[in-house]
């Protein structure tokens, strides 16, 4: 297992490097250092001299990828890419182009993102699993057909609609929760309630349909028929046998979305004024803040790699037949 993990971590280095190069290329394909400087300094009355000074201080006054005026390794080292990328691998995100410490901002904004993401994930798993188990037991019934119809309906609706409808109904019409906002401590409960409900509803249709399919596949297997023949109740069969054996595909679905929880939801955070990492990323893109954009993309790719490793570990945990690192 340890060997396997080390191997996977070593593999992640070229992946992170590649992601960093792609981010760098895409960013500077649409933004030049001059434009970044003007964005930070303002549009009015900014002189070229001021632009040059800003670029010099931020290290954007050297070539992007290859410095032909340098010699030896300086051709690579004296570039924007090298100067801004090398420290990423030591998790030193440095300062954003607007002068803020990126690491500090990320730590500060991770909490609000998690405050929505964790309850949303737990409720979503519990609710979708319960409903899927329920309708898979009642397969072919009127309830099953109606659930399928409702699920397809939920899947067909944009998440933006859930947000706007949720705000209209829950906050404006029924006046039960605030439309948007955030608070620290226990006071956050009333602010995260609506975003959590919206996120659960937005993903419920797809999850119930997927889980139901998985459970039905298990239901048709011999061991389930045997269990029923032994006279076990529906609840025992479904919870003790079917759920356990259906865990692998469910885990794949769940663990892969874990990185997204840390990175926040772009639209939800924006509409509910949640000061999380999703809105941080959007702001960085809007402000052409390369340092912050790159840090968030790097963090995102790193979390995905960790997520995939966790998936593999969870396989081994859920299915004793799987042994990591053995052919």
């Amino acid at each position: 297992m340890i060997t396997y993990l080390i191997r996977r971590l070593v593999y992640s280095v070229p992946i992170l490097f590649g992601v960093n190069i792609i981010t760098f290329a895409l960013f500077f394909l649409v933004n030049s250092p001059d434009q970044m400087a003007r964005k930070q300094l303002g549009e009015h009355r900014v002189t070229m001299d001021a632009v040059e000074k800003w670029k010099t201080e931020r290290g954007y006054n050297v070539p992007l990828l290859w410095n032909s005026t340098s010699t030896g390794t300086g051709r690579v080292r004296d570039t924007v890419f090298y100067a801004t990328s090398a420290r990423l691998f030591s998790f030193n995100f440095g300062q954003s182009d607007s002068g803020r410490d990126i690491g500090y901002d990320i730590r500060e904004r991770m909490g609000p993102s998690l405050a929505i993401a964790i309850p949303a994930l737990i409720i979503q798993i519990l609710l979708a699993t319960t409903l899927a188990l329920f309708v898979s037991v009642l397969r072919g019934s009127r309830l099953d057909r109606w659930t399928t119809t409702v699920c397809v309906g939920l899947m067909s609706v944009s998440s933006l609609f859930f947000i706007m409808a949720g705000q209209y109904v829950m906050a404006k019409l029924l006046r039960l929760v605030p439309i948007s906002g955030y608070a620290d401590g226990w006071a956050m409960a009333k602010f995260v309630l609506l975003p959590v409900i919206v996120q659960v509803l937005a993903s419920l249709g797809a999850n119930v349909r997927w889980y139901r399919t998985v459970f039905l596949e298990e239901n048709a297997k011999d061991y389930v028929r045997t269990a029923r023949a032994k006279g076990l109740s529906d609840a025992t069969v479904m919870l003790r046998h079917v759920l356990r054996n259906a865990l692998l595909p469910l885990l794949t679905n769940i663990v892969v979305i874990l990185p997204g929880l840390f990175l926040g939801s772009l639209i939800t955070e924006s509409f509910f004024a949640i000061p999380g990492l999703g809105s941080y990323t959007i702001e960085a893109i809007q402000n052409q803040d390369f340092a912050a954009v790159r840090a968030m993309v790097f963090l995102g790719s790193l979390l995905y790699i960790v997520g995939l490793i966790l998936t593999d570990i969870s396989y081994a945990w859920a299915d004793p037949r799987i042994r990591l690192g053995k052919a």
Binding site: R175, L176, P178, I179, A183, W186, A187, A189, K190, L193
Partner: peptide
């Protein structure tokens, strides 16, 4: 649960449930 989550800082009917402020 909905009521309980609003109760904190909402002080029942003296303060609107949908108020974004303490």
């Amino acid at each position: 649960l909905m009521a309980a989550s609003n109760a904190y800082g909402a002080r029942a009917m003296e303060h609107p449930w949908n108020s974004p402020y303490q």
